[in-house]
């Protein structure tokens, strides 16, 4: 089996489109959010009761093992997964690799970036590659705020302020994790660069991940909308990827709007909250000087 590629980042960091793009390479297979490393076994994951957490895995099995994503194949996939409930997440990921025909699995599940999950991954796949995606802290937190607001409506003040620390907390952990890996196992990708010149970045990803640059391969990567997970699944498994991406999965090439580290966080209107020194330093370290 080829070593998998894990895309690690906080939520709202372009991971869906980047994963789908890389996964379109003929030698790779981009997964939706399969959440295989948040529990010890697949059975525990299925029993977690979180519909959103298991939808991606059901869709993947439906696609890979039953040839399509329909209500019927998702039902069959659910039964297939339940029969293998004793498997660990790593064992299931290897099985997905086999079902994909031995291609390089690309997993962007956001929960993989949690400390416990990432340590599980590193233990199970010590030779895996890790792509650390970054995005400007202001844009990330603003986007996270909007996502939370759309789900919950009014957000308590305390929760709002705590949420501002998430960018720092998650990236700091990912940087520390990456520093402990071997040469070439961990690379950081300035997410904004990807949109400025995706072809150039995808060519570099091919070189790094030892994927062919054969004619047509990179061109295929320029079409994340062709991923089988770039649109909602059937009614019994509609999720499994970022909803915004599934609404508009085409690459939108161009530099994202300029952001600044200065000034109050505008979505926290009236709270007068700014980025602290630690966030600013890590932002400078990751390429966000402004």
């Amino acid at each position: 089996m080829r070593q998998p590629l894990f895309i690690i980042c906080p939520g709202r960091t372009f991971s869906s489109v980047v994963c789908s793009a890389i996964g379109q390479h003929p030698e790779a297979y981009g997964l939706p959010e399969v959440n295989l490393f948040v529990r010890d076994t697949v059975g525990e994951l299925m029993a977690s009761g979180r519909v959103g957490a298991i939808t991606g895995l059901k869709r993947t099995i439906a696609e890979l093992n039953f040839g399509a994503q329909t209500v019927e194949t998702v039902e069959a996939a659910t039964a297939w997964i339940e029969e293998r409930g004793a498997m660990s997440g790593a064992q299931m990921l290897r099985l997905l690799g086999e079902l994909s025909g031995g291609r390089m699995i690309v997993d962007k599940t956001p929960t993989n970036s949690q400390e416990k999950a990432l340590l599980r991954i590193a233990e199970a796949f010590p030779e895996a590659r890790f792509l650390h995606l970054t995005r400007h802290p202001r844009a990330t937190l603003r986007s996270q705020y909007k996502a939370i607001q759309s789900r919950r409506g009014k957000i308590p003040r305390k929760m709002l302020i705590e949420a501002t620390g998430r960018w720092l907390e998650r990236h700091r952990w990912l940087v520390e994790f990456g520093a402990a890996l071997g040469p070439g196992q961990y690379l950081c990708l300035h997410g904004e660069w990807f949109f400025e010149d995706p072809r150039r970045i995808l060519e570099q990803v091919c070189d790094w991940a030892e994927l062919s640059r054969a004619p047509g391969a990179v061109e295929r990567m320029m079409h994340p909308e062709e991923s089988p997970y770039a649109r909602p699944g059937p009614e019994n498994a509609p999720y499994g990827n970022n909803p915004g991406f599934m609404e508009n999965p085409h690459l939108r090439i161009g530099a994202p709007s300029a952001e600044t580290l200065d000034g109050p966080l505008e979505w926290l209107d009236g709270l007068d909250v700014y980025f602290d020194a630690e966030t600013r330093q890590l932002a400078h370290q990751l390429g966000y000087a402004g």
């Binding site: 040469p183 070439g184 961990y186 690379l187 950081c188 990708l189 300035h190 660069w193 010149d197 150039r200 970045i201 570099q204 990803v205 070189d207 790094w208």
Partner: peptide
């Protein structure tokens, strides 16, 4: 190692 606008640098 890193991605750059000048290509992959190892």
């Amino acid at each position: 190692p890193r991605f750059t606008p000048d290509g992959l640098k190892l």
